[in-house]
């Protein structure tokens, strides 16, 4: 164990809410903290609509426009471990083991009396709550029933009927699979390490505000010489999820993924080293 990591990393959770959390990571290298951030954004699997079969669309939006909008709708993914990736599944296109089906059918009827009354708003808002899922654990995130996600607006006489196939995936393939809307990552709020270069006219202090995280750090002493050996110590992380899973689960899953990544490489390295030894007859 090297000196820097003596005692190992420390975690302190500052706030924990339904779809966001803040925590401080300390006593670990910047590369590890950044890896955690990167994995949370791009490698934690979730569910998202990936294929859309449109049976009828007489709305003003084109099929592909609607399909794209459907893909962006966050789906609850706390049970995602149960679902396989389609590429690892034995089926040819999709099956219940690797996908979830969602259907949508909205038809706005024409009411003659209503049509003649200009005071009535006849626009039908088709939203994420119109999507009917075949699986109770994978359905559009409806945090607030009053504000579901709008897909398309329809007028009387129009119809939209389609079937969506939601699949498991990671945001490395498409950002729609990202479990997080944002991850804030900050260290060294006083810029003592000089990793940031501020654009200024006269002085940094008067032109740039100091982040609230600076309360946890000691202000720099202007007479102190620059410590070029200093390393970042505390990483202030804040994440907001799409509502597809709990924020703490995103962090825990990301850490598990990091472990799997490293563990997998360790095995491959051992194979390679023992293989080499056998080739040379050791």
């Amino acid at each position: 164990m090297d000196m820097f990591n003596a005692g190992g990393p420390e975690v302190s959770i500052r706030s924990l809410k339904k779809d966001s959390m803040k925590f401080v990571l300390s006593n670990c290298d910047l590369s590890v903290a950044n890896a955690l951030r990167r994995v949370m954004i791009a490698e934690v699997p979730t569910m998202a609509i990936d294929m859309v079969e449109i049976e009828s669309n007489t709305t003003v939006l084109t099929d592909e426009f609607i399909a794209h909008r459907l893909g962006m709708i966050p789906l609850t993914s706390f049970d995602v471990d149960r679902i396989q990736y389609t590429r690892d599944c034995t089926c040819t296109l999709y099956c219940p083991n690797c996908s979830v089906e969602l259907t949508l059918h909205v038809k706005v009827n024409v009411d003659i009396d209503e049509m003649n009354d200009a005071t009535i708003d006849k626009t039908r808002h088709v939203t994420s709550i119109d999507l009917i899922s075949s699986d109770e654990s994978v359905k559009p995130v409806t945090d607030d029933k009053a504000h579901p996600i709008l897909i398309v607006k329809m007028r009387p006489g129009q119809e939209l009927k389609l079937k969506c196939i939601a699949k498991k995936g990671v945001a490395k393939e498409h950002a729609k699979w990202s479990p997080v809307y944002g991850v804030a990552f900050e260290y060294d709020p006083y810029n003592k390490l000089r990793h940031s270069h501020y654009w200024i006219e006269e002085s940094v202090e008067s032109e740039w505000f100091v982040s609230p995280n600076a309360q946890e750090e000691t202000p720099p002493d202007p007479n102190e010489p620059f410590d070029y050996n200093a390393k970042p110590e505390k990483y202030y992380m804040e994440l907001e999820t799409s509502g597809c899973m709990k924020p703490e689960d995103v962090v825990l899953r990301a850490m598990t993924i990091m472990q799997d990544k490293l563990g997998g490489l360790q095995i491959k390295l051992d194979d390679e080293v023992t293989g080499e030894a056998q080739r040379w007859g050791y």
Binding site: I13, E248, M255, Q266
Partner: peptide, 25 residues
């Protein structure tokens, strides 16, 4: 190999610390 072992330990420790503080939070 040593670097990977060390990192697995670091991430493991980080995960434990996170889980512990999660109970408190």
């Amino acid at each position: 190999g040593n670097a990977i072992t060390e990192l697995i330990q670091t991430v493991g420790a980080m995960k434990n610390k996170f889980e512990m503080d999660l109970i408190r939070a």
